[in-house]
Design a protein around this nucleic acid. Structure first.
Lengths: 177, 177
DNA sequence: TAGCTCTTGTAGCGACTGCTACATTATTGT
DNA sequence: ACAATAATGTAGCAGTCGCTACAAGAGCTA
């Protein structure tokens, strides 16, 4: 059966939607601009997706997948101590090519914070994925220490991202020094 | 002169707008709902304020003032080391009555991250205000250490806020342990 | 070739957006 | 008391929002 035909076209659309959301944010993710970015019509977006929520969920999932791939490519051959991993990760996330992901991430968090039923579970899942990634990367004496360090990694990375978001990059640098 | 008359009414309105934004977020801060919350009409909001930007700037400033007052009330008589101040502050910011401020703060940051000309300067100013507050609270051996610790305080507090926003409160706790 | 499903365009609905023109009432200063 | 100014209501404009009814083309199957 060629459910694949439809799925393939859906996938192409989702890719372009992801590009658009990364470039312009969830705040300008309304159907007509998204459709134009995907080279189609709002009518067709709602043909391939039940409604806007489903469309955005698929788009955010795609964005998360891209980020996961990028981070998988950054896996170190051996476990790293917290300080070192934090610095390497910070260096990566502040690259220009990754900053759009961080912008969307904050936007996602701001909606999750209000308990939005669409965004809150997505944001939580991404956060837990990051924790798991951190635990796999970290050198630690015990499982307890590993879990604690992963939590600290997540917290400090998110803090750096948010502080940079408000235009205080040099404060981020100072905190690392 | 009773410019005061107008200013007084503006101030009452701003107070109610602040309540509404804290309760429902910037995302639902459109003129008609705001007006209803302020007990007036959209027409009158634009009578007292030049446009929506000016109105929101005033509202966010009011919100920041309230937060500043709350933090001023929490000043410790003597300087505190970083770890202790961090824990006390985290305990405060995660109280139910302060969480709405954190939600608005993340929303503000998400818009600042995209360089929004209205929100970016406001967010940056608030961030710098926090840094100054932290430097005044921290015990440190040198100005350099004080500045670095204030940066670390800001980064870790923001990180905890963001991680809690995505529903991972227990991860925040683990990071503090 | 007839019919059927998949795909797509057109047009529009009702709600909401920021904002404004116009008119009217209330208040104030002289 | 009268004129000027401040304050407010009504109505609406032009645009966007998510979404949908309707119809027509495209492609396949019998």
């Amino acid at each position: 059966m060629d459910v694949s035909k439809t799925d393939e076209r859906r996938s192409v659309i989702v890719d372009r939607l992801a590009d658009h959301v990364l470039a312009h944010g969830l705040v300008s993710a309304s159907l007509r601009p998204l459709a134009k970015a995907a080279g189609t019509s709002d009518r067709m977006l709602l043909y391939y997706f039940a409604d806007k929520s489903e469309l955005l969920a698929a788009t955010l999932q795609r964005i998360a997948e891209r980020m996961t791939e990028a981070m998988a490519a950054k896996v170190s051959p051996e476990p790293l101590p917290l300080d070192l991993l934090r610095k390497r990760l910070a260096g990566m996330l502040f690259e220009d090519r990754f900053w759009p992901y961080m912008c969307v991430w904050i936007e996602l968090a701001s909606r999750a914070a209000r308990g939005d039923p669409l965004y809150a579970p997505i944001a939580q899942a991404i956060g837990q994925g990051f924790l798991a990634w951190g635990e796999a990367q970290l050198a630690a004496d015990s499982d307890e220490a590993r879990s604690r360090d992963a939590a600290r990694l997540l917290v400090s990375i998110e803090g750096m991202v948010l502080v940079r978001a408000i235009g205080l990059s040099e404060t981020v640098d100072r905190s690392l020094g």
